[in-house]
Each structure stands twice: as structure tokens, then as C-alpha cells.
Design a protein around this nucleic acid. Structure first.
Lengths: 197, 197
DNA sequence: GGACTGACAGATATTGAAATCTGTCATCTG
DNA sequence: CAGATGACAGATTTCAATATCTGTCAGTCC
């Protein structure tokens, strides 16, 4: 077997695909381009990914998982009180999205196209994030800080109500000057609804 | 002056434009089509609307205003308590949007295209709706049912947090079976955050 | 023999010439 | 003379021919 650097792995294909998507955009990125970037024939790519759609979905999943990872640390950090963790978690999610959208709008638009066509990757990602929120809510219920008859349901509500600050369909609003004010107002309202009265 | 039915007015042009948009869709609806439907030359249409974009925006504004009207009655009905009014107002908004999206998806898609290209019509509409919400919140503060240091700000937060149930970008989710559950969960959380503890 | 290639058929995207549309305006009409 | 017309220039869209891509697979190469 040739050395690792020259072995064609799924991982190397995903990296090359990301690069091709970054360069060409989602409309013009072809499997042939990916193969060319790797110096192989496009038939070899199809040995690792059944279809172009599967390849794109794998890239999307990787990208989404990076965000999940960044947040899971906050969700499970038992050393801080649940309200602080909740605020921090949502603020970090918002900041991460806004940074991605602001730093490289074209790449962000590329991933918006990918997530739109992705079958279950986005749903899985949302389920993951909602699960993290549920953990925070559960911590709060246990410590007596939060009231919630059904933390999973409350977590869904928290995720959905804050959509304006993490859902890509609102990316255009994230540069507005009063977005921070709006974010604070929403968070205050939600936390108030969550606290034990 | 010829009888009203034959006089070319802005109103008649708007009606004809709606019909042309309904028949042809936003991509294929032309000013020439509108003029043909009215039995006049397209030059006459340009006497009433400076550009095609202005004509489309006027149609959009009319369409949005119809929804505002439907809701304003609830917002100003002082005979019912604020919490009931708030829940009713949001439920009515959700129901209206879901009905429009479900009954005639193509027409709804048409208006999504129009609102996307409309300059200020959507912003004005959102400001109108947020103003109605602010009235309800104010009523609640006056009656002692709600706590809010800044009703206008709270109204914005209420509108934004419920986006999933009225923003067209989520129209695809409105047919999901558990959407009603989600709506109730969100409303419960928000109302709890609003009530005087 | 397992990984890779490249020719191939059908599907999709690109391209440029022709058709249509937008917006203007000199002219007409009642 | 107020309101309507239709020819026109430049911009945009359509359409069909052409090129490229996707996904397969028989065959090649370590």
C-alpha cells in the first residue's frame, strides 16, 4: 500500500471537495473537478461515494458537525449555572453563524445551497443541537432554576424561537446595527419564561 | 369621462396584474400581458406605474395590507383580556399564513418572490404588525397582566420569536404533523415570560 | 486481486442567435 | 389638452445546438 499521503481516502476526497466548492461554488463544482484536484480519475471518487449527492451531503455533515462540537463543550460544562450556560450557548451559536456568514459570504452561500439539498443532514444537526439545549434545560430543572414539564419540548421551543439568530435564512439581517439589541430582548424574554417564578 | 368600468385606474391595473401573476407566475408575468388583459397598450400602464418594479411592489403592498387588516381587529378589541388577545392574534396570523400557503402553493410562491424583490413593503408590513403587537402588550401592562419595561421592544421580540409560524421561509414546515405542538410550546414559553410573576 | 482507469450512454449545463420585453416619446384622438 | 397609442432602442429571455458532466463497467495495472 502506498504511503498515507497518497492513499485515496474518503477523508482526502472530502477535503478536496471542500476546496473545489470554495473555489468554484456549488453550481459549478463537479466530480471531475474533485478528481482532477486529487490527480485521479473521477471513477475513483465514485468508489468512495455512490453519487455526487452523497459526496455533497458528507461535506455538509462534516461542516455542520464542526459547529455542534464547538457548542457541546458549553452544554455539558456543569461548573457554571444553567442560565449562564444557556445564554452563553445561544450567544456562541449566534456568533459562530454570524462570523461564518460575514467572513466569507460566498462560502456561506455555498453551504446554504448544500444544506437545502441535503436530505437528513440538517435534520440530524438540528436534533443534535436541540439535544444539547435539552441538557441545559434539564440541568436547570434539577438545580431548581428552571421550570419545565418537558425539557425536550422546551428545548425545541428555545431553538425555534431563536431561529432569527442562527437560521441561515436570516443571514442577511445579521449585519443590521440593532441585531444585538433584538438578541438581548429575545433572550431576556425566553429566560424569564424559563425561570421558576 | 367614460363609465367607471371602462376608465383605466391604478386599482383596475392592480387587479389585472394580480390575475396575470396568478395565471403566469412571477417569472413570466409581463407588463404587456397586463395591458392585453385590460385591452389597452402597455404604454398606458406606464402612465400609472413608473416601472414594472413599482407595479409589482404595489400589488405586494395590497396583498400584505389584507393580512394586516384581518389582524388589527383582534389587536384593538379591548373587550378581551390581553393574554387571550395575544394568543388569538398569533394563532390567527399563523392560520392565515398556513391557509394561504396550503390552499394555493403556487400563488404563495409567487408572493414570496414578490416580497423578496420588494424594497420597503415588507419592512413596512412588519412594522405594522409589530405595532399591533405592541398595543396588545401595552394593554397587558396597563391591566397588570404583563410585565414589560419597553412594550415596543417586547413586541419586536414576540414577532421575531414566532417567526417559524409566520415567516414564509418556513412555509415548508407548516404541514408537519407536530407543528401545532411546537406552536403551543412556543406560545406557552413566551406568555410565561410575559406574565407578571 | 483489489484499486484504478477511461470510454460510453443518458442527463444536464452552456452558449449565442433570435425573439420578446421594458421603458420612452413623438404622435394621434375625442 | 388629457389620455392613449405604437414604434423604437437597449436589456432580457428563450431555444436549440453543442459541450460537459454523471454514473457504469469492462478492462488495466501493480
Amino acid at each position: 500500500m502506498a504511503p498515507t499521503a497518497e492513499t485515496l481516502t474518503a477523508e482526502r476526497i472530502l477535503e478536496a471537495t471542500e476546496e473545489v466548492l470554495r473555489r468554484h461554488g456549488p453550481a459549478k463544482a463537479t466530480v471531475v473537478d474533485v478528481a482532477r484536484a486529487l490527480g485521479v480519475s473521477h471513477g475513483s471518487v465514485y468508489r468512495h461515494f455512490r453519487t455526487k449527492a452523497a459526496l455533497r451531503e458528507a461535506v455538509t455533515k462534516r461542516w455542520l458537525d464542526r459547529t455542534s462540537q464547538e457548542l457541546s463543550g458549553i452544554a455539558t460544562d456543569a461548573s457554571r449555572d444553567p442560565e449562564t450556560r444557556l445564554r452563553d450557548w445561544l450567544a456562541t451559536l449566534f456568533a459562530a453563524k454570524r462570523r461564518k456568514a460575514g467572513d466569507d459570504p460566498e462560502l456561506f452561500a455555498t453551504y446554504m445551497v448544500l444544506t437545502d439539498e441535503s436530505g437528513s443532514a440538517v435534520a440530524d444537526h438540528v436534533a443534535d443541537l436541540t439535544g444539547q439545549l435539552a441538557r441545559i434545560v434539564e440541568s436547570g430543572v434539577e438545580s431548581g432554576a428552571f421550570a419545565s414539564p418537558d425539557p425536550a419540548r422546551t428545548a425545541r421551543a428555545l431553538f425555534q424561537t431563536t431561529g432569527r439568530f442562527h437560521d441561515p435564512c436570516y443571514a442577511g439581517d445579521w449585519t443590521r446595527p440593532d441585531i444585538e439589541t433584538d438578541f438581548t430582548a429575545v433572550l431576556d424574554l425566553l429566560v424569564r419564561g424559563l425561570r421558576t417564578s
